[in-house]
Nucleic acid binder design. Structure first.
Lengths: 147, 147
DNA sequence: TCTTGAACCTCTAGTCGCTGAAGGGTCTAT
DNA sequence: ATAGACCCTTCAGCGACTAGAGGTTCAAGA
């Protein structure tokens, strides 16, 4: 029987994060000690490890919820899990492409900047004039892979 | 004199976002019509364009605030603007590296999955066993470039 | 001049995935 | 018995918006 602190240490999660996962129903309500403290067993440790690993791979909590459901029903086809992973891969690839365009633009902007006075600064100039950019960098939404 | 809607359209920004920028002091309080509606001039259009372009390049609003200050004081050296841009470039490069590691892991995970039953699903298996991963993918914080 | 309806206003709350802090209670080792 | 490390709940905050409710203003057409 693990305390929440021990579970946190073993999975590299913060204590508050575990409680947060419980409030949103991603982790089950655990057993409690006499005094009301949470006590976890192996199944809960496994589940949390699964969640954390999914997060490290950039899956959203919603995606992880779906993957957990699949993992809990071992009879059915794994096509669903595959398609969730495919979607995630595609998102990662899109993000990489977008970031590489930004990287190019930033490099160009910086290398042109001779660190003169602000009046002729390339960095500021480029920000002022989008037309000096090579790419569109419209940028869709991009948030992910927390901590 | 532009209405907020016209300004939004010209800069590709949502109306609410402009008002949000005003509440956090990134955009000045504009003039108002008799009836109390916001009215913008060219200087404000330029400023908003600068902000949006900075966002597209992945700068945080804090970084943009600093860049705006620099742009407003054209006498001083542009080394500061340069270093803000350098920092941004470094962040982008780190993010790319991390995403590429994820990409590899996801690809490996997916290609091993023959879409059999969930019991043997590679995707779920990999999530269960971090030890099957090639990389550490510890992942620092990663959020950026909202649109 | 009146009316329509699109666009504007303020204010509040929600998004995602946590994180931190306040103000307490519990557990365990000495 | 007591110290102090750990645990509890609850609430607020982060960044950068986004959405909605409920009301007002504006410009154009009849």
């Amino acid at each position: 029987m693990l305390t929440i602190g021990a579970l946190a240490k073993r999975t590299g999660t913060k204590v508050q994060t575990i409680r947060y996962y419980e409030t949103i129903g991603l982790m089950p309500e655990p057993a409690r000690s006499e005094g009301g403290q949470r006590r976890y067993d192996q199944a809960e440790l496994d589940r949390l490890a699964f969640v954390r690993h999914g997060r490290q791979l950039g899956f959203s909590l919603e995606a992880i919820r779906d993957l957990l459901d699949l993992a809990d029903n071992p009879a059915q086809s794994c096509a669903d899990a595959d398609s969730i992973a495919q979607r995630q891969l595609k998102q990662v690839e899109d993000r990489i492409a977008r970031l590489q365009a930004l990287q190019l633009e930033l490099k160009r902007m910086i290398s042109d900047c001779g660190q003169d006075s602000v009046a002729q600064c390339r960095v500021l100039e480029v920000l002022r004039n989008h037309s000096e950019c090579l790419t569109d960098h419209e940028a869709g939404s991009d948030r992910s892979i927390g901590s």
